[in-house]
């Protein structure tokens, strides 16, 4: 028994099956990420003044990854076009580039960006102790400027044991530039190029701290959403890379010899998925890195 319209279009709908299937699947994916992004909006709007952080992610690296992903969306189209023109070798090249882009994207995310966050520390100061740390927070200055208050001190944690050892009563933090020079107008807004850490060390008493943690998901709702959404997005990238690799290696690519159109259709469907993954990133990037 054969299922009709697996490679040829049904005349009245003008579509073959998998094309409808993938669009439906993508509709559900829109709802999935829609749910996550609506959580982002909800939590961000709910956050108390100063509690939604800014400028903690590496914008140039994020920009580079954006470019890589957009580039791969172009090459996957070229790969598909090559198949349509029955140019198998060009297909292999463009598909290879696409796969490579996906891998680079993931590597940057997993080997650089995430671990970099895990090395970064932040301590939320209790509302009634903010004044005590005014030299690092600069809230008088923020108030004058009509900006949101600062409630967190961030930087490199020197005494890492302090996180778990109840006998250590303070955190020694090598400050980020913004907390080292909080009243410097240059600190009012985040920068495109991340500034190097200052040499200044602050001692923060645990008793003054509401909540302190490395930049892991549970640090705050910003990182919770950031890691969840980029994690899920990363899984999608990984899924795409695996499927592309299958179509690129002989095991999948050999379909070309039997039915080149079928392979082209498969690449088209997977390519649509890839565009979607790209599109999600186009939302992730400004929402987390820029805004």
């Amino acid at each position: 028994m054969d299922i009709p319209y697996t490679t040829t279009a049904r005349p009245d709908t003008g579509l073959w099956n998998a094309k409808i299937g993938i669009w439906l699947f993508l509709a559900s994916e829109v709802m999935l990420f829609g749910g996550l992004f609506s959580a982002y909006v909800f939590l961000r709007l709910d956050a108390l003044p100063g509690y939604w952080p800014h400028g903690l992610l590496n914008v140039p690296v994020g920009t580079m990854n954006t470019a890589i992903l957009i580039g791969s969306s172009v090459t996957v189209v070229l790969a598909w076009a090559a198949l349509k023109m029955r140019q198998f070798n060009r297909y292999k090249i463009y598909m290879g580039i696409t796969i490579l882009c996906g891998i680079i994207f993931l590597a940057v995310k997993l080997a650089y960006e995430w671990p970099d966050k895990f090395q970064h520390f932040g301590a939320y100061i209790r509302q009634d102790r903010l004044e005590k740390y005014e030299e690092y927070l600069g809230n008088h200055h923020m108030l004058e400027r009509g900006l949101e208050p600062r409630v967190e001190i961030t930087g490199h944690l020197h005494n890492h044991d302090a996180l778990h050892d109840p006998n250590i009563h303070e955190y020694e933090v090598q400050l980020d530039q913004v907390n080292a020079a909080p009243t410097d107008p240059a600190s009012d807004r985040p920068h495109f190029w991340p500034l190097p850490k200052s040499q200044k060390i602050a001692v923060i008493e645990k008793a003054d701290v509401e909540h302190a943690e490395m930049f892991v998901p549970k640090h705050n709702t910003f990182f919770a959403t950031y890691f969840t959404i980029t994690g899920l997005h990363g899984l999608h990238v990984l899924g795409g890379v695996i499927v592309f690799t299958y179509f690129w290696l002989p095991i999948g690519a050999n379909l070309y010899k039997r039915n080149p159109e079928h392979l082209a259709n498969r690449v088209e469907v997977a390519g649509l998925f890839w565009h979607f993954v790209d599109l999600v990133w186009i939302f992730v990037f400004p929402l987390f890195y820029l805004l």
Binding site: S28, L32, G34, V216, K218, A224, T228
Partner: peptide, 18 residues
Amino acid sequence: PPLEAAIVMQLMDRIGAT
């Protein structure tokens, strides 16, 4: 799917203490 998103988040809350 939005419930799936919510379930992932609840899992994070339970396991990852978010």
